[in-house]
Design a protein around this nucleic acid. Structure first.
Lengths: 254, 254
DNA sequence: CTTGACCTTGACGTAACGTAAAGGTATATA
DNA sequence: TATATACCTTTACGTTACGTCAAGGTCAAG
């Protein structure tokens, strides 16, 4: 079966403009162009559009979608199964929002006071989602799906106190790191204190700590531009400094 | 409890920029500005932000959100209960998408061919959603929630054949309308044929037809700019013509 | 008294389209 | 055969909900 823009659009429940836009940004090219310059789409394009819309449903940017479906290792069925999981997650999130909404309604009706944090329970899961959107795909490649998934689950299940503690720990280790860097010695007391705080902080995200993984992460802080620039933005060289300190702490270097 | 921008933002899981933007577009004003020009938010603003985020979750534009929560008739608890319903609907839609995804996966795995329409089953509900976003709020005011809800349900439960039939009917009556308008007589045979097609078309959306409602809708086609401009865009005067024809058909005028 | 983390107001950038303009094509009907 | 109507094309500017600097003021801690 062959379709023109409008036909394909109607089929998929999107506008013709959307289909043309997807051509423009090279994520859905027509099968061919007929003699009058019309875009003609075939069955493969229909499937591709379906894939795109599934990903879009997960609020993934079209830019990322392109990378995913253009990837040579792209396995359609595997991808669809992943969608399924994601959709289930989204459903869970929705259910949580509803539960929270119920709480809000009853509290309003009965005049019970809810603490401000509680009011946003369902929304906070968004942070996880955002994190996923930014780094998920790349980190998954390096560390494997299961690790990322577990990490996300851990964040989601944090209690309010845990959340506050981890926020404080993050702040603490970053402050100590700044002081240690000024000091200049990665083997020094302050630097080793930093790494210890860093380990505690990490333990909130990892389900089990290992020196090897810690050292591996340290190296990534240097190798991965996103992380390095984050550490180096205040003081260039901080990422390397932290890596060295971690390598010493974990006994990978002295 | 009082909060600065950042504090409120963290609490709600959004960025400070978002909070400032909401001030800028007048949907969430700070409780007061302190002596240094800082925005200070109180408990009322926290609740308001929660409301906004709930609506945002339903993909409602900030512009509409403002109208809704600024409306003097705005009842917070009632609104929250409506969110609940909407979220439940969204959940249902998600479940449908998942079911469809399962179908796609099995068909891919077993090499069964799915018809192209089936592939987009879950997405088509979007049309309903969009329709809702555009007209829902205003039409609800005129016709009441239940009518709109029932209409939406009917569209959702249409089979493929019904969908095709209603599309064809719409096309037919619009074509006939054009011809009838050229003819010029709202009491003429062609015009009355138009109205009959229009009635058939309507019956797909209404659970029961009544001459009174039909006549009422006819008047709305003239009174409501959105509808009128839609009819008049080809031939100015078409909306009035259709109304007159309907009034004659329904016996409200001769 | 300086520093780092806040806050402020611009102001320009972005994603994923919507929408209008200007013009070519296909098909049914007069 | 003419013309109307519904398609199609490209170009291009508009929109929403922020992101992201930039330039400068504020405040608590060391």
């Amino acid at each position: 079966m062959e379709y023109t823009v409008q036909e394909l659009a109607q089929l998929a429940g999107v506008t013709a403009r959307t289909v043309r836009y997807y051509d423009e940004i090279d994520i859905l090219k027509p099968a061919r162009i007929n003699s009058s310059g019309y875009r003609i789409y075939g069955p493969e394009e229909v499937d591709r559009l379906q894939q795109i819309l599934f990903y879009r449903e997960l609020d993934i940017g079209l830019d990322s979608i392109r990378k995913i479906i253009n990837s040579p290792s792209f396995d359609e069925v595997k991808a669809l199964k992943k969608h399924r999981e994601k959709l289930l997650e989204k459903k869970e999130q929705l259910e949580l929002l509803i539960v929270n909404l119920d709480r809000t309604i009853t509290s309003k009706e009965r005049g019970i006071i809810m603490c401000d944090q509680e009011k946003f329970e369902g929304f906070k899961k968004r942070l996880v989602e955002d994190n996923e959107r930014k780094y998920g795909e790349e980190i998954r490649e390096k560390y494997g799906d299961e690790d990322v998934e577990r990490s996300n689950k851990k964040i989601k299940n944090m209690t309010q106190e845990e959340y506050e503690e981890v926020t404080k720990l993050e702040k603490d280790y970053k402050e100590t790191l700044r002081a240690a860097f000024k000091n200049g010695d990665p083997a020094g007391k302050l630097a080793q204190k930093t790494v210890d705080l860093h380990r505690q902080w990490l333990s909130f995200y990892w389900d089990r700590y290992s020196k090897e993984a810690h050292a591996g992460l340290a190296q990534m802080y240097v190798d991965d531009d996103r992380f390095r620039s984050n550490y180096d933005k205040e003081q260039p060289g901080t990422a390397e400094f932290l890596r060295d300190a971690i390598l010493i702490y974990t006994g990978m270097k002295e």
